[in-house]
């Protein structure tokens, strides 16, 4: 008969103990972790503030970006400090804000050394210059 120790005394297992042990044995194993597999990391993050004339200023927490520019109204290019090995990195949904407007931002091009964000007004789809843009890249 199986037993367990309770307060220093050996006692037989109850039906509940036996059922719990059976359930634990039947539980799925945690997923095996691949040894040596690359783990995604936050490679680039940026918060950019844009003035009314289109001047761009990067907030200090920005990392991994060498330079940024407004290629056209509502079109921004961000050049990385270091090239990626390939263009398969993941750009998290960029966040754009402008007082009094609802904007949509989407990644319209990405390459190993830069990527492009296009910002439009949600109400008419026209290009828009936001007050700020934030983005993050996982690679």
């Amino acid at each position: 008969m199986s037993t367990k120790i309770v307060d220093g005394i050996e006692v037989p297992l109850s039906e509940t103990d036996i059922a719990q042990a059976a359930a634990d044995a039947a539980a799925p194993m945690p997923p095996a972790q691949r040894v040596g597999a690359p783990r995604p990391v936050l490679a680039v993050s940026a918060h950019l503030e844009i003035d009314a004339l289109g001047g761009i200023n990067a907030v200090a927490t920005t990392m991994g970006v060498a330079f940024v520019m407004e290629a056209d109204e509502g079109v921004y290019w961000a050049f990385f400090e270091e090239e990626f090995a390939n263009a398969n990195y993941v750009v998290m949904q960029p966040n754009c804000r402008k007082a009094g407007s609802i904007l949509d931002a989407r990644v319209t091009e990405q390459d190993t050394y830069y990527f492009e964000i296009t910002v439009t007004r949600r109400d008419n789809g026209e290009p828009a210059r936001p007050d700020s843009i934030s983005f993050a890249i996982i690679a």
Binding site: I56, N57, A58, A66, F67, F79
Partner: peptide, 21 residues
């Protein structure tokens, strides 16, 4: 002619990346 904001202030980083822009 465009104004490009450099985020990094490290000439070594910029010296490499100006080859792109």
């Amino acid at each position: 002619a465009r104004v490009v904001t450099t985020v990094s202030n490290d000439p070594a980083v910029l010296g490499s990346q100006v080859r792109q822009v």
